[in-house]
């Protein structure tokens, strides 16, 4: 049906960034695609400029030293990537945790860029922001990528209910799931969003064999919170998937939250204790990064 093809090519998603080669977003060398927009607002978010879409307030247009940003007749901020010097002044200026350097791309446009890195990579990983906000787009994208014999992994905060709509899992090798907090009060404070779907996804993805890895950020000196989360995850996943224990790093974290959470990165030995705890509880594939 011709209208289906037409509607396909019209589907667009906001792409914040494409990293051609990444060694930390799943197995092997992968291209990582970061989409704009996230339903969470985590205190330790290290790329907060990916949380919201541009509000077209124009504040960044005034501060851009390269003249790469303009407020168009359509009322939207336009970004000239050729003129941009990547100084990130716009990102520091933005009062909305957004970025003007977002490209609304069709699947075909994105594929054109991805094809360049295909010979060098094992697959792609989609991240964000939160890539599952672009569920329909991901389904089409993954279908195309798989035609080239490459794998597709989803990096997700777990807000999307995969059980309710498992279509994207059918074209994906699996999910790298963030489980940031388990205890309800702490979770509400940390991620500003209900965590019930996250925990539901943990069990569901494990059950259907689509959980590639779980990640938890270990904060400095938060013994109780860290331990609760690690215990919960470890007990649930066993040796069913990797468990990546991530040390908190203040780099990129908004200043006011750095003051609350810590201005130094989590000590490696401290993080190793939690990896050991996880392994003791049966999560054999737990390790610190």
């Amino acid at each position: 049906m011709p209208w289906t093809a037409a509607s396909r090519s019209m589907l667009k998603a906001p792409v914040n960034r494409i990293i051609p080669f990444s060694n930390v977003d799943g197995p092997g060398n992968r291209t990582a695609v970061f989409f704009q927009g996230c339903p969470f607002n985590c205190l330790y978010c290290h790329n907060p400029e990916t949380i919201h879409l541009c509000q077209s307030c124009g504040a960044c247009v005034k501060t851009c030293p390269a003249g790469a940003l303009t407020l168009g007749g359509d009322g939207a901020v336009h970004w000239d990537s050729a003129a941009c010097v990547q100084c990130d002044t716009c990102i520091r200026t933005c009062p909305h945790d957004a970025s003007p350097k977002v490209r609304w791309m069709t699947v075909e446009e994105l594929m054109t860029e991805l094809r360049r890195s295909m010979p060098y990579i094992r697959g792609i990983s989609t991240s964000g922001g939160e890539c599952t906000l672009q569920n329909e787009f991901l389904i089409e994208l993954f279908t195309e990528v798989r035609k080239l014999g490459k794998t597709c992994l989803i990096d997700s905060n777990g807000s999307f209910d995969f059980e309710k709509d498992p279509r994207v899992l059918r074209v994906s090798e699996g999910v790298m799931l963030d489980v940031k907090a388990v205890e309800k009060r702490w979770s509400d404070q940390l991620i500003s969003h209900p965590r019930d779907t996250v925990l539901k996804n943990l069990d569901y993805l494990l059950k259907v064999g689509k959980l590639y890895e779980v990640r938890t950020v270990i904060l400095p000196d938060r013994d109780r919170e860290n331990e609760e989360t690690v215990r919960y995850v470890a007990a649930h996943i066993g040796d069913g998937c990797f468990y990546k224990i991530i040390r908190y790093r203040p780099f990129g974290v908004r200043e006011r939250w750095q003051k609350l959470l810590g201005e130094f990165e989590t000590d490696r030995d401290y993080a190793e204790r939690y990896a050991q705890l996880a392994r003791d509880l049966g999560a054999k594939k737990a390790y610190v990064v």
């Binding site: 080669f21 092997g28 060098y120």
Partner: peptide, 9 residues
């Protein structure tokens, strides 16, 4: 830590 990511490049 990820030589398997370097080799295919």
């Amino acid at each position: 830590k990820t030589p398997e990511a370097v080799l295919p490049i």
